[in-house]
Design a protein around this nucleic acid. Structure first.
Length: 439
RNA sequence: GUGAGUGUAGCUCAGUUGGUUAGAGCGCUGGGUUGUGGUCCCGGAGGUCGCGGGUUCGAAUCCCGUCACUCACCCCA
């Protein structure tokens, strides 16, 4: 009989225990910071009606939505991100207390072609604030990003900040057609990658007028020292309505960030940051690292009109999204990922057939004290049992033989330090907990 | 959707202008050490050379097809 070939779909992955332990650690850290800032957990289904997702991500994004017909012929789709499902939730439960602050850490699916840092099933960690127009909300979202990266031991990162009102205002003042602005922004977003000349070519190719192009690129030339003076922009576009509004928001936002003790080396204004999604309406932000080259590790912004697509009542909202696997990729390449590969804390060895009962009793005692304990199942020589613990990365091994039994103690071996000592049976759980805390 | 590269042992890879029995390191396994892992020494197992076809006396090596993976572009986390 032919065996079924074991395989999984392209762009989908298994996470074996050592990898899953790392992922869990990162997720726990992110969740803790979210909750520290008063965000509450939320979970939405993997599957949504296709109509909920369609028409939200632009032409390119639309192609990447996984869509199916269910058995009743209804069009359904796997969620593409966590922001649209959240918007649906807000529209469905209008009585939710506002401001509504929630987070969701869940997989999303995109029928993309996989490459470095890109998968078809990947996890996003979103935190959103719905129902507040205040820049306090945006500042809090950014501060949360900052604290998460700090908690994960990131040293070098930059949260780039810009504002859609500012960008739209500039583009309109310079004579760009309103309906072409989103494609303009998408080109501007490539500035860092392609350079001034590169995006100029792209704009010409897309049929923008040469005069308009020169005008907008002049801004980037002047400010290529990468700090743009907001005052200078305000003066240049004093006739615009949107530009001063955008700048006002940015000034408030930066002031709040400063009050919230966010290190000013970790964020900056970046006029070329545009973000691909169409639905942003105010501040936008994105986190990047210089090394490794992996694109952004978090992105977000204010989307005041999105919830209105599902409801007559509109709600202002702002939020951000972390890419879990990108964060982990960066941590691994920078060697700041946690080193433990198992959650098990103790291996209880089996010494000899007549000692089985005693060994099981020790394991039972440890477990009732909350110590994660594995019992070796076979009466192999100790060498093998120790090798097993070592290879698996279990930090402690307990040995109980006839000698120990006679003295009413056990041997506690620290596999990391390579030292061991006799510990009285009654002190065992306490001693292990103490040593675990010192690892 | 477009383009490029790579498929040889569990893993990372070597393999000469096509030549007889396909190698190394790591890992695994047994022993040196029947109460102790990570070092050292000795032994052992393990390969349809991705798959299918073609060229040839002979193919891991050349050609065609196919599948898988990786990377880049597009777009994005």
């Amino acid at each position: 009989m032919n065996k079924i070939k074991p395989q999984i779909p392209k762009g989908f992955r298994d996470f074996l225990p050592p990898q899953k332990v790392t992922r869990q650690h990162v997720i726990d850290t992110i969740r803790n910071v979210f909750e520290l800032f008063g965000f509450e957990p939320l979970e939405t289904p993997a599957l949504e009606y296709a109509s909920i997702l369609e028409g939200k991500y632009g032409e390119e994004g639309e192609k990447l939505i996984y869509k199916f017909d269910d058995r009743g012929g209804r069009k359904v789709a796997l969620r593409y991100d966590l922001t649209i499902p959240l918007s649906r939730v807000i529209a469905m439960y209008p009585a939710l207390l506002k401001p509504f602050k929630c987070y969701q850490i869940s997989p999303v699916w995109r029928a993309d072609k996989p490459q470095k840092g890109r998968f078809r099933e990947f996890w996003q960690c979103d935190a959103d604030i719905v129902g507040s127009e205040s820049m306090f909300a945006d500042a809090e979202v950014i501060t949360t990003i900052y604290h998460i990266l700090k908690a994960l031991n990131f040293k070098q990162f930059k949260i780039k900040i810009n504002n859609r009102k500012l960008l739209n205002g500039i583009a309109q003042s310079l004579g760009f057609q309103v309906e072409k602005i989103s494609s303009l922004l998408r080109i501007i977003d490539k500035l860092e990658k392609k350079g001034i000349e590169g995006i100029k070519d792209e704009m010409l190719k897309q049929g923008f007028q040469k005069e308009n192009i020169d005008n907008i690129l002049e801004l980037f030339n002047i400010t290529s020292g990468n700090t743009v003076d907001l005052l200078d922009l305000k003066n240049r576009f004093s006739d615009s309505v949107l530009v001063p509004e955008g700048i006002q928001e940015l000034e408030e936002l930066f002031s709040h960030l400063s009050s919230m003790d966010v290190d000013s080396n970790c964020y900056c204004f970046d006029l070329s940051l545009a973000r691909g999604l169409d639905y942003y309406t105010g501040p936008i932000f994105e986190t990047t690292v210089d090394e490794p080259k992996i694109g952004s590790i978090s992105g977000g912004g204010r989307y005041d009109n999105l919830i209105g697509m599902f409801s007559d009542t509109d709600f202002p909202a702002t939020g951000s999204s972390f890419g879990l696997e990108r964060i982990i990729t960066v941590m691994e390449e920078l060697n700041i990922a946690p080193s433990h590969t198992t959650t098990t804390e103790v291996l209880m060895t089996l010494f000899s057939p007549d000692m089985h009962k005693d060994s099981l009793r020790v394991a039972s005692l440890l477990r009732s004290s909350g110590i994660k304990t594995e019992v070796y199942f076979k009466h192999n020589k100790l060498k093998k049992q120790l090798t097993y613990a070592s290879n698996k990365g279990i930090p402690f091994v307990i040995i109980e033989g006839p000698d120990e039994k006679k003295d009413n103690n056990v041997i506690l071996r620290n596999m990391i330090k390579g030292i061991q000592k006799a510990v009285a049976f009654d002190d065992l759980a306490f001693t292990i907990k103490q040593e675990l805390s010192e690892l």
